[in-house]
């Protein structure tokens, strides 16, 4: 960490933490003042108690959901990159297949998820498949842009030196696409977590194992609203963790492309 790294980190973290504290206080005051029924909106203290009481099942569910989301995200990065490579090779291929890629983005995943579970089966692979479908499009779209948005002069420079198609791809297009790919990954990682949770609405891992998606459905059906809020809190933290890790990795890799000034 650089000399002014800690103050900078505090300056980044303290304002949102302060706002969160204020939000908790207002939430508590509102619930108490308006005497809202706990099954409609529990206060922050019952939610904290629910987290404490159900900490182990929540942690285990979050671990399983994270595994599914990680699988979907990894598959999105790999398949998204390969599809973008294919698109970048020919305008005809891109024009022919791009509408189907958009389909992945626009189809209501809640409607599609039961079908996917039906075809792939319950368990981790079904969850990974739903997570993948929801998160692959940003990787395809961004990486395709990066692979094709190459400066015309550079294309000329490569042509002038009789570069092969493979050299153009490896030495020009792929490095040019890295910042775009990472931007796509940053959008995709949050979607992968949402996809895994939606997948778990319909697919379980077995009698003993369940992810956050299943817990959300279960606690909602049993009107355990404080426990439901605890699930939402864990889901949010999971999404934030994914976003933070991918964001840090992106920033680190982009140092080579953009220098220290990029955030």
């Amino acid at each position: 960490m650089s000399k002014n790294g800690l103050p900078k980190l505090l300056a980044t973290i303290l304002p949102p933490l302060g706002f969160f504290g204020l939000f908790l206080l207002l939430w508590h005051l509102a619930v108490t003042f308006f005497r809202i029924e706990p099954f409609l909106l529990p206060g922050p203290i019952p939610v904290a108690k629910a987290v404490s009481t159900h900490f182990h099942p929540l942690l285990n569910a979050a671990r399983l959901t994270a595994t599914g989301a990680l699988g979907g995200f990894a598959l999105s990065l790999l398949v998204g990159f390969l599809v973008a490579l294919l698109f970048s090779q020919s305008r005809l291929i891109e024009r022919s297949l791009y509408p189907y890629a958009i389909f992945l983005q626009t189809v209501p995943i809640v409607a599609l998820a039961p079908l996917i579970i039906l075809w792939i089966g319950h368990g981790m692979w079904g969850v990974i498949a739903v997570s993948f479908i929801l998160s692959v499009f940003p990787v395809i779209a961004n990486t395709t842009t990066g692979l094709t948005a190459v400066h015309a002069d550079l294309r000329d420079l490569f042509a002038l030196n009789d570069a092969s198609a493979l050299q153009v791809m490896v030495k020009l297009q792929i490095p040019n696409a890295v910042p775009y790919f990472l931007d796509g990954a940053r959008i995709s990682c949050g979607l992968a977590v949402i996809g895994a949770i939606v997948g778990e609405f319909f697919a379980g891992y077995g009698a003993e194992d369940f992810g956050l998606g299943y817990l959300i459905i279960l606690t909602n059906a049993q009107t355990k609203t404080d426990y439901l809020f605890a699930c939402i809190l864990f889901s949010t933290l999971l999404g934030l963790s994914f976003f933070a890790v991918v964001g840090l990795a992106r920033q680190r890799i982009l140092l080579r492309w953009r220098g220290e000034s990029d955030h």
């Binding site: 000329d156 420079l157 002038l160 030196n161 050299q167 030495k171 020009l172 492309w257 953009r258």
Partner: peptide
């Protein structure tokens, strides 16, 4: 091969100066 100098330097941002200079020879 004729050499071309463009209006913009059009250097590859991910390569250092020596890596940019070596590009035509690598190709």
């Amino acid at each position: 091969v004729p050499a071309f100098v463009f209006q913009d330097p059009t250097l590859l941002p991910w390569r250092r100066v020596d890596g940019n200079t070596s590009l035509p020879l690598e190709l």
